[in-house]
Amino acid sequence: MDTPGYDPVSMTGLVCGGCNIGVFTTGRGSVYGCKPAPCIKVATNTPLYNWMQDDMDINAGTILDGTETVEQVGRRIFEKIIAVAGGEKTRSELAGIGDEEFAPWLLGPTF
């Protein structure tokens, strides 16, 4: 889908385009949530995952740590997608995030 890179706008576009689940990767620590679709957040590194564990659903930093392969983390993300689709709450849902993050792409001048 053709969207800006600005996360709330791209996710709003994706969800309004019909996506019923999201996976959001972050290295700096985004706390994004996107009602009405659940949004699974994946930390790119272990220090971030440990520091912001309440906001992160999965740690992919294990790949850098050498304890898991890309394939193994990919499998974990896939299983998480199925669990969350079936009702398991994501961290951002537990935190109640997602009402204010609805951000339609505002194109063109305001008159």
Binding site: D7, S10, M11, L14, V15, G18, C19, N20, I21, G22, V23, F24, T25, T26, G27, R28, G29, S30, Y32, C34, A37, C39, V42, A43, T44, N45, A60, G61, I63, L64, V70, E71, V73, G74, R75, R76, I77, F78, I81, I82, A85
Partner: peptide, 28 residues
């Protein structure tokens, strides 16, 4: 599960995004 439509997003990225979380998301 063919009824799932997955939104992918990478935000608040760092130099690890392209070598850990994103390729793993690619597998999923």
């Amino acid at each position: 599960i063919n009824k799932l439509v997955l939104a992918e997003n990478c935000g608040g990225s760092d130099g690890n995004s392209g070598i850990t979380a994103n390729p793993a998301l690619g597998v999923a």
